[in-house]
Simulated assay, not measured.
Amino acid sequence: MVSSIASPSDAEAFRTLNEEWIARLFTLEEADRAVLGDPFGRIVDPGGDVLLAREPDSGTVVGCVALLAHPDAVFELAKMAVDPDAQGRGIGRLLVAAAIDRARELGGTRLFLGTNSRLAPAVHLYEDAGFVRITRDRLPVADYYARADILMELG
């Protein structure tokens, strides 16, 4: 079950899931802290969304993905995380599909993302969903995460 962020506890789950993997594999950047610390103000209010995957029985958040709104109907798929104990169950695939649908519902005409070559399962997931690699000069934003060595957009 995937739903939009709706409460402070949802925001906390979003922050916790993302901080865990980013801090474990990379360096938590100031841009990460800003978005994760205020998803309503930094993502939802400007026209984006945060989608959460929940366990059907308990409602526990086991995965998340953000859609950040940029000018000209451009959206960024970002901050995707799945609880390590829930990985391998198709939750990431479900979240990517839901994010693509939600970006379209929000009027998006372009969807891009940045990832890292160390995240091979995520790269494969994005490619399976129709994302293709682009060069940095094709990014619709000026400053972007240092850790993003693979840039993609939905083909």
Rank of each mutant, 00 (worst) to 15 (best):
Met1Tyr: 08
Met1Asn: 13
Met1Ser: 15
Val2Leu: 12
Ser3Lys: 08
Ser3Pro: 07
Ile5Lys: 07
Ala6Asn: 10
Ala6Val: 11
Pro8His: 05
Pro8Glu: 06
Ser9Glu: 10
Asp10Lys: 11
Ala11Tyr: 04
Ala11His: 06
Thr16Cys: 14
Glu19Arg: 11
Arg24Glu: 15
Leu25Ser: 14
Phe26Tyr: 13
Phe26Lys: 06
Leu28Ser: 06
Ala31Cys: 07
Ala34Cys: 09
Ala34Ser: 14
Ala34Ile: 10
Gly37Ser: 10
Gly37Trp: 06
Gly37Asn: 05
Asp38Tyr: 08
Asp38Ile: 12
Pro39Arg: 01
Phe40Ala: 14
Gly41Met: 06
Ile43Leu: 07
Val44Met: 08
Pro46Met: 03
Pro46Asp: 10
Gly47Phe: 03
Asp49Leu: 08
Asp49Tyr: 03
Arg54Asn: 11
Glu55Phe: 04
Pro56Glu: 05
Ser58Phe: 00
Val61Pro: 11
Val62Arg: 09
Val62Glu: 13
Gly63Glu: 10
Cys64Trp: 02
Ala66Glu: 03
Ala66His: 06
Ala66Arg: 01
Leu67Cys: 08
Leu67Met: 09
Leu67Asn: 07
Leu68Pro: 07
Ala69Thr: 05
His70Gly: 02
Pro71Gln: 01
Asp72Thr: 04
Ala73Arg: 08
Val74Gly: 00
Phe75Arg: 02
Phe75Gly: 03
Glu76Trp: 00
Lys79Thr: 10
Lys79Ser: 14
Met80Thr: 09
Val82Glu: 12
Asp83Phe: 02
Asp85His: 15
Gly90Val: 12
Leu94Asp: 15
Leu94Asn: 13
Val96Ile: 15
Ala97Asn: 06
Ala98Val: 03
Arg102Cys: 11
Glu105Val: 14
Glu105Phe: 07
Leu106His: 07
Thr109Ile: 11
Leu111Arg: 04
Leu113Ala: 06
Leu113Phe: 01
Thr115Gln: 08
Ser117Tyr: 08
Ser117Gly: 15
Arg118Pro: 02
Arg118Cys: 04
Ala120Gly: 13
Ala120Asp: 15
Pro121Ile: 15
Pro121Gln: 13
Val123Asp: 05
His124Met: 04
Tyr126Ala: 05
Glu127Thr: 11
Asp128Val: 09
Gly130Asn: 09
Val132Trp: 05
Arg133Phe: 06
Ile134Ala: 03
Thr135Lys: 05
Thr135Asn: 07
Arg136Asp: 10
Asp137Phe: 04
Arg138Ser: 10
Leu139Pro: 00
Leu139Asp: 00
Val141Leu: 00
Ala142Gly: 00
Tyr144Gly: 03
Ala146Pro: 00
Arg147Tyr: 07
Arg147Pro: 00
Ala148His: 01
Ala148Arg: 00
Met152Val: 00
Glu153Asp: 04
Gly155Tyr: 03
Gly155Glu: 10
